[in-house]
Write a protein that binds this DNA or RNA. Structure first.
Lengths: 349, 349
DNA sequence: ACGGTTTTTGAAAGCGCTTTCAGATAGCCA
DNA sequence: TGGCTATCTGAAAGCGCTTTCAAAAACCGT
């Protein structure tokens, strides 16, 4: 290597490196590194000199070099089905909270409810060298877990519970069943479901199953024409409820996969001259910002996204740092009662 | 360095590196690198051997080493005021779209409408070695631009226009003025504003200024009691409109900083027995998902978030790759007319 | 078959940081 | 002050990849 004399090193274009700081402070790069990290066992005068030199030069350590050397990238990845979905955004935001405190960065990616895409995105993150990975749900591409295992980094699944893998979530079937039971307690007998896409989506699937089982447990059944699967969003909710009405005998209550869908269903119901909750009770999922303000305010299953995120973040950090972490954390979902649910009309048989 | 004999290298715990692939394919690491990247000028048989070896071993290049070597981190950072805000999420999502196509990763951070925090987060990203940076707005911590400049990476500001810095955005003052003019054309004379926090927020500030100027241009003025600043969200909108009514003579129309705020204002108006748009016209900002479905559907200024994101992404990629890029891109905001606006009542003077 | 090209290829030098290891210093007690 | 221990410190070896440079191999026209 061509070793330049010390005095011509202030090349303007080059951003300063540890070597420059060392030179300026009259120490070695080893000492610079010690000061800028743990500081353990460096004499005060040298430490100050290094600090000042770093300050003066505006030194910023090169993350790649540090990552290469420590084998720690100081980042964790998260792949969520839809990065624009409120619930996932909240989780990402709270995971990031925790990570940030531990000095880690969150890199989020979008899987678009597609297993292949999820695999691609996860692989991409793995290549980047993330130190941990957060996924949503328990259904993934068959190769995904093998790939994660090979990379040797910790992984945690969220939003649903899993027998196989570390997870932070809740029992989607049970919480949806609770909503169904609540409706049946009110006297409803014809209960419908409008869910988002269920393909490769264990949360959606489990919720419908839970509802069907709760109905069965009381001798009722989820009629096929009352079991609707649509795309997410308010428009989806309208379409879904329209389809349901087209099916014949209308339900007296519907449970929806998200509050957006519930909102859409309510709009469509009103457009058809049905009053909520008079003619139709509606329950959503997620407790979105707007839900308390709808007309009527929406009964919904609140998912504690922030708690899920915090727990998932803590779990990953712990395992990255070699500390023990619980394999399964259950964060209970909560049924928030508002005015969109009521007993069915007497004549609704 | 202790050079292990070639035959004991299948240590299970260690993930494979280029050296392993090279050995298995009977080539040098240089060739491995050539194959895995550009592939230029490698004989077909060797190329295949490398490909196969990499496949067999499940080789994944170490991103940190690559970044260190190429001086490219292949990631760009984005710092937005609120990562849970719909408009910013949409921009992030569309920036990521573009970056992903170019092989780059997006790392998003949250500044919480605080200049110090924004500086901290941006610095954090800079330390990571991001190759480019996206910011929101034209008001930043005094040290921020210096720091970015020192790191030598391209930066682009979004959502507003700037004289000083590269930007992709729109004229917040002009678009808000357009809304005000529309209301005045309908005959409104008492127009109010409910904006989110304006501190260190040039978008919010510019909108109010634009409205005030539009009013002034027609001999009207924005009464102080009709100029309300609140926190974001539906609750904020309700509070804001309540405050406005407490101010004395009620306005016949309000322009709100977001559709959430507008929604809140509409709720509060109705609670006070005012009909929209009969007694009060309401205009929002952003054209949120739910806005067409409100009752009445909300007139709003649609911000083309996806276009902003795409343009910002393209701009950064171009500059990272050393290609020229336009300094200022203006993405027009659009006034979407729906049913929440109408002429004022005749007797509303 | 041979000299001159044109391709391919591998050795080795980094990229900038951390960390080990041994030597240098400082501190302490007698 | 000397000797021994406890602290500090710097040289140097990596981390795993890319890339230059020169040597080796393949190709070509005669």
């Amino acid at each position: 290597m061509l070793d330049l004399p010390d005095d011509i090193l202030e090349l303007p274009g080059r951003s300063p490196v540890a070597r420059d700081v060392a030179r300026r402070a009259g120490v070695s790069t080893a000492t610079v590194s010690r000061v800028l990290n743990g500081s353990a066992g460096v004499r005060a005068d040298k430490r100050d000199a290094v600090m000042r030199a770093a300050q003066d030069l505006g030194f910023v350590a090169n993350g790649a070099a540090r990552a290469l050397s420590t084998r720690r990238f100081m980042a964790v990845g998260a792949v969520v089905p839809n990065i624009e979905n409120e619930a996932f955004v909240r989780v990402l935001s709270s995971v990031q909270d925790r990570l940030r405190q531990a000095g880690y960065t969150l890199i989020a990616a979008n899987a678009g409810y597609d297993l292949e895409d999820e695999l691609r995105e996860a692989t991409f993150l793995l290549e980047r060298g993330v130190d941990g990975l957060m996924l949503v749900g328990d259904i993934h591409h068959p190769d995904l877990h093998a790939r994660i295992a090979r990379s040797g980094i910790p992984m945690v699944q969220t939003f649903s519970l899993s027998q196989e893998h570390p997870c932070v979530g809740f029992d989607n079937a049970a919480s949806a069943a609770r909503a169904a039971n609540y409706l049946m307690d009110l006297g409803h007998r014809r209960i419908g479901v409008i869910s988002g896409l269920r393909k490769d989506n264990d949360r959606g699937g489990a919720r419908v199953t839970g509802i069907a089982q709760a109905l069965a447990a009381r001798g009722l059944r989820l009629a096929p024409e009352h079991d609707i699967e649509i795309s997410y969003g308010i428009g989806g909710g309208r379409d879904g409820f329209r389809q349901m009405l087209a099916g014949g005998v209308p339900p007296t209550a519907v449970i929806c996969g998200t509050d957006q869908i519930a909102f859409g269903a309510m709009i469509e119901a009103r457009a058809r001259g049905l009053s909520v909750p008079g003619d139709l009770s509606v329950i959503g999922h997620n407790d979105s910002d707007f839900s308390p303000f709808l007309d009527p305010p929406l009964t919904t299953i609140r998912i504690h996204s922030a708690e899920i995120g915090h727990a998932a973040g803590d779990h990953l950090i712990a395992r990255i740092q070699g500390r023990p972490a619980v394999r399964l954390t259950e964060i209970d979902a909560e049924l928030i009662l508002r005015a969109s649910t009521a007993p069915p009309r007497r004549d609704a048989g």
